[in-house]
Nucleic acid binder design. Structure first.
Lengths: 201, 201
DNA sequence: TCAGACATGTAAGTCGTTACATGATTCA
DNA sequence: TGAATCATGTAACGACTTACATGTCTGA
């Protein structure tokens, strides 16, 4: 049963940081969590409404005079409890479908040229991604330790906090999730090397 | 467009190995590809019918006299071409939603006890999985090199081939996909260690 | 004889993506 | 003035899961 409604809890969890609009949520996910999460408007807005109707969040209109229409959602006490319950639930680890692995596996009955091409393209993509992640990680690492708060960070974090102590903690979390991305890519690249060696025989 | 119909091409690819029934396909996926792929009957049977109606596969009834009803599907020339075209297409790398990462990220505003519990449970699961994969890998590795073909392998491979040369090649492919699983888990475990260290500070 | 594997399929529901539709504000 | 960004939403479709329904054969 259940083990679903991931969007619901993802949004609830983000609202536990601070009140946000649907647009804010989309941006935070796209810019900050993009290496392990995604959301789209088609899910976000209906889910926010459903959170309100279940009393897990409240909706407030913001910016009346001259400003753009904007609805900000805040988590309620009930919402916070629901979120914490979800956190404590065992995390299901469903099979993650890996299309590249599938292609690799299925290409092996054919002449090896196709497999080699596949692996090479993958390697190139992953290396580019690794570069990107490592650049972000460097910035985050610096911001974690230094007093100075580089402006580039706003682009990565999106969730900005005024207190330096909180900022450092937030940088740390972002940094650690990025590390998972980096370690995973490195594992994939090692695998490519193994495969390349194995195919040469 | 497209970048979808993964089930379609997965099945088509499996049929390119040898003719199979829906039930066979399910078993091969469950037993041999379970660390990177899954399929369920609700998808398999309708997809097979659709492959037939698109002339990418043909359906034959098998086992008329006394035997169980059984429909075996074979790939056609058109099917084989469609499969090869798909293999050559660039493999989209959509964001893979990682619920554990999400929980980790979202738990970091709370007292660290919850985060620690989360990571520990994850570590335990991943270690168990690693053990399992490594045991399979050992068997496959032995079968790749040795002349002797251990019977346990039938359970892992499901696709058995009579010719020893083909058998070795198939073991190699299975082994290499397993290696990806192993390297990935090891990366995840390294990440857990990093996080544990970081949380102690 | 009865459990478990073999075997095929359908229906309902959930989840997620994509495209569409609309309109305000800001800044170059 | 026109492009980019801010901002909210809906509709249609496609993919996937789960539960259900049915029946056969094999071997302990």
């Amino acid at each position: 049963m259940a083990a679903k409604q991931k969007t619901r809890y993802a949004i609830l969890g983000l609202l536990s940081w601070k009140p946000m609009s649907g647009y804010d949520i989309k941006k935070v996910v796209d810019v900050g969590l993009s290496h392990f999460w995604n959301e789209n408007f088609g899910q976000i807005y209906p889910t926010l409404e459903s959170l309100v109707s279940d009393e897990l969040a409240t909706k407030q209109e913001q910016g009346s005079q001259g400003k753009r229409k904007r609805f900000v959602y805040s988590i309620t006490g009930k919402g916070r409890r629901a979120f914490k319950t979800w956190l404590k639930e065992p995390t299901a680890m469903p099979v993650v479908r890996n299309e590249l692995q599938l292609k690799f596996f299925l290409s092996c009955n054919l002449p090896p040229a196709e497999t080699i091409r596949l692996i090479r393209a993958y390697q190139t993509d992953q290396k580019a991604l690794l570069d990107e992640y490592q650049r972000s990680a460097t910035v985050l690492r610096a911001a974690m330790n230094a007093e100075a708060y580089p402006e580039e960070l706003d682009e990565i974090l999106q969730i900005t906090s005024s207190k330096p102590s909180q900022r450092a903690a937030q940088c740390k979390v972002f940094y650690l999730t990025l590390r998972q991305g980096i370690l995973s890519i490195q594992a994939r690249l090692s695998w490519c090397d193994e495969v390349a060696k194995s195919l040469k025989e």
